[in-house]
Amino acid sequence: MTEPTVAEVMAELAGLEDPKARAVNEKHGDDHGVNLGKLRAIAQRLRTQHELAQQLWATDDTAARLLALLVCRPKAFTRDELDVMIRETRAPKVHDWLVNYVVKKNRHTEELRLAWLADPDPVVAGAGWALTTDRVAKKPEGLDLPGLLDTIEAEMKDAPDRLQWAMNHCLAQIGIEHAEYRARALAIGERLGVLKDYPTPPNCTSPYAPAWITELVRRREG
């Protein structure tokens, strides 16, 4: 069986375009109209095809890039390739999948985390904070948690939306995972009030850090 060409895959994605899905996605900044369940089904059929993934990424099409992130080989990317990719990424879903499905599985994760944290581009810095949040939860040894809280306290209130969201997640994760810093994390969240009025559906946890921390700790200790 011959492997599909980029043109064939793009045609298949175009055939799945749903105007209603696009309208919903565009509210979140994602310019595509492909149902993610159907996208994942294509990825499952294609399996790992790193060269195809690189070609799909190069199209600059959001649905194609999401598919590329599902069929690529995360460990095959160089540090520089991932650095370029994060800077090319503006759709939130592509940014999220790139960080979670690819960068976290690459051997350059820590090097990129440190470089991105200090980057002046808020979207790139947001990726650095997302990787830091992952370390707070899974491998906190060596992290300067008080220093992270200092930075969050000083910068989160006025940070651009995507960076603010990533810093807020890190704040909540520190409060949830590290009891010795919980009171300070709660106090920072309460004083800054970031996402306090964020519309949250019933039975969902608010992203407002004090509410998020309190609820997750209650579930764990309950």
Rank of each mutant, 00 (worst) to 15 (best):
R182Y: 07
V123T: 12
G33P: 12
L70W: 05
W129M: 07
T78M: 07
E141Y: 02
E221F: 00
L16R: 01
A187Y: 01
L70E: 13
A125D: 01
E17T: 14
E190T: 15
W165Q: 10
D30S: 13
D80G: 02
A130V: 07
A118L: 03
G193M: 09
A187N: 01
A115F: 00
P207E: 10
A159H: 03
A21L: 10
A43M: 05
M1S: 13
S206T: 14
E12A: 12
Q164W: 01
P120V: 10
E221D: 08
H28Q: 13
L52R: 07
L131P: 01
T132F: 01
M167K: 00
D150M: 08
T78W: 07
V9H: 06
P207A: 12
I174C: 10
W57I: 04
W165R: 12
N203M: 11
E26Q: 13
T78I: 07
T62A: 15
A137I: 14
I176A: 01
V102T: 15
A183W: 02
P160R: 04
R220P: 00
P4I: 01
G222V: 11
D80I: 08
P74C: 04
G189V: 03
M10H: 01
D60H: 14
A179Q: 12
V124I: 09
E12C: 06
D197K: 11
A14H: 06
P19E: 12
N106G: 09
W212C: 10
R220T: 10
T78D: 06
I213C: 08
P122G: 04
L70D: 14
C204H: 14
R87H: 13
D96A: 08
A130S: 11
V71R: 01
W57L: 00
H169N: 15
V103A: 01
A187P: 00
W212S: 07
K105I: 02
W97N: 07
V6Q: 06
H95R: 15
N203T: 10
W129V: 10
P140W: 05
L148N: 03
D197Q: 10
Y208D: 03
A64M: 03
P122C: 02
G222K: 11
H50A: 15
R182N: 07
D119G: 05
A185E: 04
L56Q: 11
L131S: 05
E111M: 11
K93Y: 11
G33Y: 08
